[in-house]
Design a protein around this nucleic acid. Structure first.
Lengths: 235, 235
DNA sequence: GAGTCCTGGATTGTTGACAATATGAGGCAC
DNA sequence: GTGCCTCATATTGTCAACAATCCAGGACTC
């Protein structure tokens, strides 16, 4: 359905289209994001090799890439462990998102094609249907949200911006979203905010789109801050 | 014999302080940034091994990291070449900087210690002296500028933000700055803008610091855009 | 003469073994 | 009993050889 996202979770394709280091990178990234490898967990290379059926050469290359992206930390001769982000750092990620996605929304309003905008609206329609079907359950917040932001990022036509958002930030945020219980009512509210952003983009109003996107992410951040204060979310 | 004491102190002293892959990563990154490896240049692994005196294992790990950071592009079995950024993409980098460094300036105003702010002012004093000494030559624009922005980024106390700015964006920008002739008069103007930003930070005025930083980078971007139009800068 | 297929060569991807180092258990002195 | 040093072990860093793949040049066909 959405080929851009999450095609790797299923059984590895028999055809080896890419290199083994790439496979290892994808698998590890997914394992970290989904929580199969817990934050702070120390992992050995040989263990990982057995787990993913590969040898240490490609594995080490993948580990290097993951370290460079900030999902792992390595100490020479002392092993590698999954990065553990404090609640403060999670908040900081949202501050960064606010700045970067605001820019993405503005540029998307200026540059998205009409067809892309139509797709954006269609995406929101399908999200609305899913929310109704699931009675406001977690699905939307878990993946659908990123579907929307994904389209904005690519629609900005700013390759580096999209790379930083899709390749760096989202993975770190999703790492915590996966264990984050959705607050009731938030999905509907978020959908409304998405709708308004999409409208601003459709009207080619970059300033408004930026403003609305910033406010949208600001609201999400405050939602998380509240949960942390309440103790609902501990990291 | 007391091998423990010896190994603890002497083995650490030689140049081999870190792992070879780290060395390769640093060397390659510097070579790309300084232009020793031209953008678009295709480079072979064995050639690089000979150049940096290492074997292909650590080298490949370093290449993976560099690719993940966007300084290289690799195709399976087809070699690796230095990324070549178009002038449009360079402009996009400045848009991203505007958003991210605006945030950094705001957070720095809220979080920098008084000692750090004093250091910031001292840095600007030394920059002013250098400009006078060099009659507005390129030095300031080439490195001193990044010195200032470096301090702001770290002063934000936002680890991920600093990592993205210092680890990703600056290297790509510097890659082109190195071959960018400084326009006369711009260093002094930039210094004045830096002074005002530092003052806003000293007064703990986050909003103003963000506004001034955004305008500062906006001006730098327009300066480059003008050069591109004039044909002074071709990429 | 132009396009296509094929083959040789070179380069990359991968593997398993070897060397260097940090961690943790155990013993010794105090 | 507590703290420090020592040593063994397991883990990581590195290396050189092997296998898989792409690219360039040439011959052949249309």
């Amino acid at each position: 359905m959405n080929p851009l996202l999450l095609t790797k979770t299923t059984v590895h394709a028999p055809i080896q289209s890419q290199t083994r280091a790439d496979d290892a990178f994808d698998c590890l990234q997914m394992a970290i994001v989904k929580g199969d490898l817990a934050p702070g967990e120390k992992i050995g290379e040989v263990e990982l090799c057995a787990r993913f059926n590969l040898t240490r050469g490609p594995l080490r290359e993948a580990l290097g890439r993951l370290e460079s992206r900030g999902l792992l930390v390595r100490r020479a001769h002392a092993g590698v462990k999954v990065v553990s982000v404090s609640s403060d750092e999670l908040i900081e990620l949202y501050h960064i998102r606010e700045a970067m996605e605001g820019l993405a929304a503005r540029q998307a309003a200026e540059r998205m094609t009409d067809a892309e905008i139509a797709d954006l609206h269609a995406t929101l329609d399908s999200h609305e249907a899913m929310i109704k079907q699931a009675h406001g359950q977690a699905y939307y917040q878990g993946e659908g949200d990123y579907d929307f932001h994904h389209r904005i990022a690519t629609g900005s036509r700013n390759a580096k911006l999209a790379q930083m958002l899709l390749g760096d930030l989202y993975y770190m945020v999703r790492m915590y979203r996966y264990r984050l219980s959705t607050s009731a009512g938030r999905p509907q509210k978020a959908l409304g905010e998405h709708r308004r952003i999409a409208e601003a983009i459709a009207q080619r109003d970059g300033e408004l789109a930026e403003f609305l996107m910033r406010r949208h992410i600001n609201a999400a951040r405050k939602n998380i801050e509240q949960k942390i204060r309440q103790g609902t979310l501990d990291i």
